[in-house]
Amino acid sequence: MIISAQRKSLSGFEVVIEAALKAGSQSYFAAPSPFQALLLNEGAMRFEEHHGSFIQAESPAAALAMAMGASAVGSVPLVTVNEQDFLQLQEVLSYCCLQSRPLVLVVVANGPPGMERNWLQFQSLAYFFQPLLGTGSPLVSYLPSSLQELWQHMGLAFDASLKRSQPVLLLLDPLLLMQQGPVQLSPLPSVKQRERELTKNGQSLMPYESLSICLEWPCEHVWLAMGVLGEWLLQLHKSDWNILCPQSLSPFPKQALREALAEAPEGEQTVINVIEYQGPFLFQQLQNILPEFNLRSHILTAAPEPLGLEMKLATLLNTACQPERKRDV
């Protein structure tokens, strides 16, 4: 039975599985790997309870191959993989793209391929861009920043996948996987008994605004961050900071961003502070997407936490604003 209560306290992995069932997915395939196994454990039980098909595959590539077969006979399957397994998947994912098979692929970004450690920690956006750019096909990639958004995005992912007849990526931050909190179990568009319709790429994919915004002019600074970091920024509730948090990497909500920034008072050149962890990955992408804006890159060297984030950002701003000092040798 699908949980029918409207508001319930759920963990991130439970949200993914519940939303998939609510959206009408009939089959789930996965191979065990660290942290993504949380989804596997939950999904194995729930899908079998729900008379769906579940196979624990021998390898992530085999899991995606099974999903490819299942989507060939009318199902929209769910596949969950680890970031490290994603490289092995690329070949099969390319096949799925070329044969236009609808399926939803949840990628748990718990560490880059080849990393020595496998800890559950805050991840840099580099590992979100890697699945996005890997296949060569422009795939719809959602990047939820909170549990409620995760619920909504799962529904949207199944819907978009069926509409466009292609795989859709949902990039899941490992912190979101473990997080627990109240989720409004709102109705999702169901994929059951719907004819597959191919739509043009120009169709809007996000029925609601694809940008979490906290904008009040005049302001002191404009920040742009994605994922869990963006959600933390929004939760700071600083009155003199404007915060932009895009919810999908592809297609990037550039129109919504431009509209939001068009309201800025004239005569001032707005500087958008792009904040991210480890390297300027998002900044490099944004330079291509939004060439007309004045972007400034801020890189956090240590993994951020919600506590003390405000202080960290203030120090970053101070160091960036100060003129460079000459070093004495």
Binding site: F29, S53, I55, M66, M68, G69, G74, S75
Partner: peptide, 10 residues
Amino acid sequence: AVAAGIKRTT
């Protein structure tokens, strides 16, 4: 593996 996915679904 693809055949298994098809068979389990239908």
